[in-house]
Simulated assay, not measured.
Amino acid sequence: MNDHSTHQKVALITGANKGIGRATADQLATLGMTVLIGARNPQRGEEAATAIRAAGGDAHALTLDVTDQATIDQAASWIEQRFRHLDVLINNAGITGSGQISPQDATDQLPSTVNLDMVRTVFETNVFGVIALTNAMIPLLRRSPAPRIVNVSSGAGSLTIAADPNGPLTALPSSAAYSPSKTALNALTVQYANELRKEGILVNAADPGYVATDINAHNGFLTPAQGATTLVHLATLAADGPTAGFFNAQGPVPW
Rank of each mutant, 00 (worst) to 15 (best):
L172F: 11
N92C: 03
T125V: 11
A238N: 11
A75S: 15
L202A: 09
T30R: 12
T96R: 07
D164K: 15
R142C: 15
L28P: 04
T236W: 02
L172D: 00
I161R: 07
N219S: 14
L116T: 04
P139Q: 00
A212K: 06
M1G: 11
G209W: 03
T170L: 11
A162I: 05
L159R: 14
I101D: 03
L86D: 01
T183H: 15
T113N: 04
G45F: 12
Q104P: 13
Y192R: 14
Q226I: 04
A176S: 15
E195Y: 14
T113V: 07
R44M: 14
A162F: 09
A205V: 07
G251K: 03
L196S: 13
L28N: 11
L159N: 09
R44C: 03
D105V: 01
W78L: 12
F221L: 07
L234P: 00
D26P: 12
T189H: 13
L172A: 01
I149Y: 15
A193W: 06
P252L: 03
A11F: 10
Q74D: 04
I101C: 05
R197W: 13
D164L: 12
T63A: 11
G97N: 02
I52E: 01
L36I: 15
L64P: 00
G21L: 10
V10E: 06
S153Q: 08
T223N: 07
L237G: 07
H218F: 11
Q100W: 12
D207E: 06
I201M: 01
D87A: 03
G209C: 07
P111M: 04
G57W: 01
P224V: 10
D108L: 04
L36P: 08
N219C: 12
L89D: 15
G45R: 06
N41F: 10
N166Y: 11
V114G: 11
A49R: 07
F246W: 07
D214V: 03
G157C: 05
S174H: 04
L159V: 13
R84H: 09
Y178R: 14
L196T: 08
M137T: 01
T125N: 15
R120E: 08
A238H: 11
N204D: 10
A25H: 06
T67M: 14
A51W: 01
R197L: 08
L28H: 08
S158D: 12
N126D: 05
V114Q: 14
G200M: 10
S112A: 09
Q81V: 03
G129Y: 03
D164C: 15
A61L: 00
A29W: 08
P103K: 00
N151V: 03
G38Q: 13
T230M: 02
L231G: 00
A11Y: 06
S175N: 06
Q250W: 14
S144L: 10
D58M: 09
A49I: 09
D87H: 01
H85C: 06
G245S: 10
A93L: 15
S158T: 04
A106C: 02
S5I: 10
G241T: 08
N91V: 08
D87C: 05
L64G: 05
H7K: 02
A93M: 14
I95N: 06
L222R: 08
I52L: 08
S112Y: 12
R148G: 02
A61D: 05
Q43G: 12
F221V: 12
F83W: 12
R84I: 06
D240L: 06
